[in-house]
């Protein structure tokens, strides 16, 4: 009996010595969860919290993984200068639970709750920059145009984002045809390009099947462009304890549930005039997945008077992978200015 008391006492002592989950100064590597209904969304805050600048990454997908963005460049460059917030969306990455809401409005509410949670735990005076990539580039402006959500955020960074799905598919088709023809004429990978061009000429961009096929071709086409580079020492997010099977299953659940289906009927273009906060557009020249034309649409409609656009000449859909040094330098310099 006595030994039981000793064990309980030791257990309580260890539990009582746990450090706080939120680092208030220095380098953070915090992990916590946002519980939303029956789903728990993991959030990692890593980097320099002294700067009081928090970069919240809204990952791609649906069904992507926040920690995929935490490669050696993000750790060495971004996390030195600011705190980077890696968050797994519902039905993505390490998010876990049962039967959570699937509507896109639930994603929007999650973003808002994360920002409120960050401010509550790290201080109301922190400056939050919201960076959406790909599908995250739909969610980010979708969140910002609602109510007074812009007041929670210091700046918007859009990286190869899909704010208008229908326009996106149309632009992808056009780009595949025009670039494909140029490449065939130049005698580069003609056998790869020809069936893609033929298919695009014979089919439109409307409908799920066409959109899926275009997306598949877009990812392949990027690999066929010699100008698109990836540094050889680029490393993935190994060691971040991502649950690989959870990620794999969530990816499938996202597809099965067609989480981004409502994005087709919710184009953000006609609401971009509501956005007045500092905006940074970062685009890969050779992004077939979310072509450069989408950034032009934002420039045309966004009401921000502080809008900067940077095009990466050697990048496709993910400039943070293709040109990581330039990418992070640009992001950090812009955050410093704003």
């Amino acid at each position: 009996m006595r030994i039981s008391y000793v064990i309980i006492l030791i257990g309580l002592l260890i539990a009582g010595c746990q450090k706080s989950s939120f680092t208030k100064n220095g380098q953070a590597n915090d992990q916590f969860f946002l519980k939303s209904g029956n789903i728990e969304l993991p959030i990692t805050v890593a980097g320099n919290v002294d700067a009081k600048k928090f970069l919240v990454i809204v990952h791609g997908g649906p069904g992507g993984n926040g920690l995929d963005y935490r490669d050696s460049y993000a750790m060495a460059l971004a996390e030195n200068k600011c705190a980077v917030v890696y968050w797994d969306q519902r039905f993505a990455g390490n998010s876990q639970g049962n039967n959570g809401a699937t509507d896109i409005s639930a994603f929007r509410q999650d973003i808002k709750n994360i920002l409120l949670l960050l401010k509550a735990q790290y201080g109301q005076d922190i400056q939050i920059y919201l960076m959406g990539h790909s599908w995250g580039g739909f969610l980010t402006p979708y969140f910002l145009v609602e109510g007074n959500n812009q007041s929670l955020v210091k700046g918007w960074i859009q990286v190869d984002g899909a704010h208008n799905y229908r326009m996106n598919d149309s632009l992808t088709r056009e780009m595949l045809i025009s670039t494909g023809k140029q490449e065939i004429a130049a005698g580069r990978r003609s056998s790869d390009w020809q069936p893609v061009v033929d298919w695009c000429m014979a089919n439109g961009f409307e409908g799920n099947d066409n959109a899926g096929q275009l997306n598949g071709y877009a990812h392949k086409a990027e690999e066929w462009i010699p100008a698109v580079t990836t540094p050889s020492n680029s490393t993935s997010s190994g060691g971040n304890n991502a649950a690989l099977l959870s990620h794999w299953i969530n990816e499938r659940a996202s597809g099965y549930l067609q989480l981004d289906g409502p994005a087709y009927t919710t184009p953000i273009s006609d609401q971009l005039h509501l956005l007045k906060l500092p905006t940074l557009l970062l685009w890969g020249q050779y992004d077939f997945v979310c072509p450069l034309g989408l950034s032009t649409d934002i420039e045309k409609h966004c009401a921000s008077t502080n809008l900067t656009k940077i095009i990466y000449e050697h990048s496709g859909h993910s400039p943070m992978v293709n040109e990581p040094v330039k990418f992070w330098e640009d992001v950090l310099a812009w955050m410093e200015r704003n």
């Binding site: 916590f32 969860f33 519980k35 939303s36």
Partner: peptide, 8 residues
């Protein structure tokens, strides 16, 4: 879950 969880 391995970490503190919060609701809003």
């Amino acid at each position: 879950v391995n970490g503190p969880a919060y609701t809003v």
